[in-house]
């Protein structure tokens, strides 16, 4: 299962849709892991789109499974990279060279979409004009509200901050500017009184 229906939550929590082709002079697609499936579906639904597409793809743990299939779509440009930080300069360059009419499509995990969205907004695209589709892991990018450190790919609640070691409760409160959910100390009142950690959405 690569699609997950997030339960309704507070207004701060991002919601995701389904990618659809929109008219535009250029198309920038950023995906990680199973997010590739959303791009494959998009390409199947909109023949000709890939000829004008720049695809930035991070396979993460999926190895060559999707990378091969994306290659066969022959996008105008295809970059396959090891991590978001490795791909970020390329994304920034693509945005700074772009003109109005560019369409942005993001797919995959929340952490990837959130960070790419932050760059796109920074480049001047209104948030509502950026398409997203969640696929794959429900892992989150979390910011510790105490030490401000970011812990990537958090899949359990509570979890231990990778920076300061506090036990953090996973909140739905999201910061677009940080591209991260907020983690708040769960045992501040009674240090050590930490409920057993369980998988997110389990």
């Amino acid at each position: 299962m690569t699609r997950f229906q997030f339960p309704k939550s507070i207004a701060s929590r991002p919601v995701y849709g389904r990618l659809t082709a929109r008219p535009g002079s250029a198309h920038l697609m950023v995906a990680d892991a199973e997010g590739a499936e959303a791009l494959l579906d998009l390409a199947a639904a909109a023949p000709g789109l890939m000829e004008r597409a720049h695809v930035i793809y991070l396979p993460k743990t999926t190895g060559a499974t999707y990378a091969r299939r994306l290659e066969t779509l022959s996008p105008a440009q295809l970059y396959i990279g090891p991590s978001y930080p490795a791909a970020e300069p390329r994304l920034r360059k693509a945005l700074s060279d772009a003109h109005m009419g560019l369409q942005v499509y993001l797919a995959g995990t929340e952490g990837l979409m959130g960070q790419a969205m932050r760059e796109a907004i920074e480049a001047g695209i209104p948030a509502g004009a950026i398409q997203t589709e969640h696929r794959g892991s429900v892992a989150r990018r979390m910011q510790c509200v105490h030490c401000k450190g970011i812990t990537e790919d958090v899949t359990t609640d509570p979890f231990v901050c990778a920076h300061c070691g506090l036990n953090l409760f996973v909140r739905d409160h999201y910061s677009r500017r940080m591209a991260a959910f907020q983690g708040v100390c769960i045992d501040a009142e009674d240090p050590g009184d930490v409920p057993p950690s369980k998988e997110l959405y389990s």
Partner: peptide
């Protein structure tokens, strides 16, 4: 503008 992919917000 719509045909050329401009977002309505802009």
């Amino acid at each position: 503008a719509t045909d050329h992919g401009w977002p309505a917000e802009a």
